[in-house]
């Protein structure tokens, strides 16, 4: 059997397995539709939050082939800053709807910008000087930056869980939690906006060109350094939004919140095919759904096992990820 034939067999097996999972889901859904719909919306919400983080991983990897470990902690910083802002402004669960809505919008904007600046600064300070060093050097620096941010947060906000005022509450409309609606209302425009930016604007084209061939991009007159900064900026914006939403939905956050969420988001990016924006979003939604279904139907304890087993299987059987294209490079 040729390698291509083998891949076809593996893919078919994977698809068969997927169908089996879908069928089982269909059966449990038919048994108890209410639980199923509830879990699905929770899954989509989790997935949306992960997607915002996963995009930062995948964009940065796409452009400088670095796994930016510090990205997860930028997300954590977003959740902490969001919490701090809400608390400092004295807004609480008892505040009026207008005050709550305003602080959510303003908090999102401020934290997105703050996280974007943090991310850009990290690149300037820690990665740019190592641009021509062997790839292991920036990778280790990235892990270092991750520790620095996490420990900084621990120093400022303490070692235990910090509670966040429950501004959205647990109400629901037509069986869908308002929390889920808020997350979708914030995430969807961000994803659409990012896609539009990357496909249509001049700077977006510069990003794609730089990701494909940095040297050739420079020859076109593209400012490669600025384009890389822009990539970190966009990733930071999305991570900041994700952090604030995470704090609002879970009504708690902690200095190491980035660890597990970052790992899941990174898994999502790999699952979708690292470097591929659409892949990251689909991968994140899949992981969010798996998380929610496995919590409801398999048991919470198994969630991590299920997710990381999937990661290992994808890496072994389909290393380019679900949407990863076959490399098109003809030298």
């Amino acid at each position: 059997m040729s390698a291509a034939q083998k891949q076809v067999v593996i893919d078919r097996t994977g698809q068969l397995f997927g169908c089996f999972v879908l069928l089982s889901l269909f059966i449990v859904a038919a048994k108890d539709p209410a639980t199923f719909v509830g879990q699905t919306t929770i899954g989509i919400t989790n997935g949306a939050l992960l997607a915002l983080i996963a995009l930062g991983y995948t964009m940065v990897y796409g452009i400088i082939e670095l796994i930016n470990f510090a990205h997860a902690d930028v997300f954590m910083m977003g959740s902490m800053l969001g919490m701090q802002l809400i608390v400092s402004m004295g807004v609480s669960a008892q505040s009026g709807v207008f005050a709550k809505g305003a602080i959510i919008v303003v908090g999102l904007v401020i934290c997105m910008v703050a996280c974007a600046l943090i991310n850009v600064a990290i690149e300037k300070i820690a990665y740019k000087p190592l641009r021509n060093a062997p790839p292991l050097a920036p990778l280790i620096t990235a892990i270092g930056m991750s520790f620095i941010l996490a420990n900084l947060a621990q120093k400022i906000w303490g070692p235990s869980q910090v509670s966040v005022p429950d501004l959205i509450g647990n109400g629901s409309i037509a069986g869908v939690r308002i929390k889920d609606i808020v997350v979708i209302m914030v995430t969807a425009p961000l994803l659409v906006g990012l896609t539009w930016f990357v496909t249509n604007t001049r700077q977006g084209k510069a990003m794609r060109a730089t990701a494909q061939d940095q040297g050739a991009a420079a020859i076109m007159g593209i400012d490669v350094n600025r384009t890389i900064s822009l990539t970190f900026l966009l990733g930071g914006l999305l991570a900041g939004a994700s952090g604030v939403l995470y704090a609002l939905v879970n009504t708690t956050t902690v200095w190491n919140a980035g660890f597990k969420n970052g790992l899941f988001a990174f898994t999502a990016a790999v699952l979708g095919g690292i470097g591929n924006l659409r892949g990251a979003v689909i991968g994140a939604l899949l992981i969010g759904l798996i998380q929610a279904y496995s919590a409801a139907y398999v048991g919470d304890r198994w969630t991590d096992v299920v997710i990381f087993s999937i990661l290992v299987m994808v890496l072994v059987f389909r290393p380019t990820g679900l949407l990863g294209e076959q490399e098109i490079t003809r030298a």
């Binding site: 794609r208 076109m220 007159g221 294209e325």
Partner: peptide
């Protein structure tokens, strides 16, 4: 050559006019 492999021919030509 160093063409942008994942861009179309048309997009590559457009990149040439970037500046």
């Amino acid at each position: 050559r160093r063409v942008f492999p994942k861009m179309t021919v048309l997009e590559n030509l457009e990149m040439g006019a970037f500046q």
